[in-house]
């Protein structure tokens, strides 16, 4: 679906903080809304995950939160230097994807003012992405082709659930191509997954796991599933 700009103030990301909200300036020509809308919708971050969520760490994850907070506070340099982070844990639902999105959104928040409607970050749910690549062999999807071409150049990519399934040769070759190219171009990545270094090698193979693990800052969550916890 080609991007279309639609202003809906009730969906603005800055409602809790914006001094202009509900003022006469809160209208379709709000440049921050325009740019953030462009960045968010083109990133592929699911709409229901685009809004801020308060994350409270379990005691055991405080250090991981501190590390991620440091990355978030310096996200411009993190991306500029082409750095990557691998957020992983044995458990599900303890905030890995939420943190990944949070980092990307903070990057959007830092760059929107001189963005000029450029796609700067993409959220990829890896299992879905690999399935779509296979589907694309027999059926061309223009939007998906656009997304694939952007993957090679966009500043930041979230590879969500990177080793959720064991990769076949075809999947492996595809994923390796994109991640390799991004590393060569010194572009930033955020990976999320449930595998440790050794398991990652088994699932992704040596070359790909080396890209993901060795070239990233690993951040491990050990806390339990916190979905539904307020």
């Amino acid at each position: 679906m080609a991007y279309e700009y639609i202003f809906d103030k009730s969906k603005c990301w800055y409602i809790p903080a914006c001094a202009k909200y509900e003022s006469p300036e809160c209208n379709a020509s709000c440049i921050r809304y325009m740019e953030m809308d462009y960045l968010m919708q083109n990133s592929g971050i699911p709409r229901n995950r685009q809004y801020t969520v308060l994350l409270t760490p379990s005691k055991r994850d405080v250090q991981a939160f501190v590390t991620l907070k440091e990355i978030k506070d310096d996200i411009l340099n993190f991306v500029k230097n082409g750095e990557s982070v691998y957020i992983y844990s044995d458990n599900f639902g303890n905030g890995k994807t939420t943190w990944a999105i949070k980092l990307m959104q903070k990057y959007f928040d830092d760059v929107w003012a001189a963005n000029g409607f450029r796609c700067r970050g993409i959220f990829i749910h890896v299992p879905t992405f690999l399935t779509k690549i296979k589907e694309g062999i027999s059926r061309k999807d223009e939007d998906f082709e656009t997304l694939k071409s952007r993957l090679m150049t966009v500043d930041l990519v979230i590879w969500d659930d990177i080793a959720a399934t064991k990769l076949g040769d075809f999947d492996h070759a595809n994923l390796l191509t994109y991640i390799d190219q991004r590393k060569l171009n010194q572009l930033s990545n955020i990976y999320t997954g449930n595998l440790h270094q050794n398991e990652l090698q088994d699932a992704l193979g040596n070359r790909l796991s080396s890209r993901v693990w060795n070239d990233s800052t690993p951040v491990k969550f050990v806390g339990a599933d916190r979905r539904g916890v307020r």
Partner: peptide, 12 residues
């Protein structure tokens, strides 16, 4: 442009 949004607090 950026300074015209004086939010006072971080959103993300």
């Amino acid at each position: 442009i950026k300074n015209s949004f004086n939010d006072g607090t971080d959103i993300f």
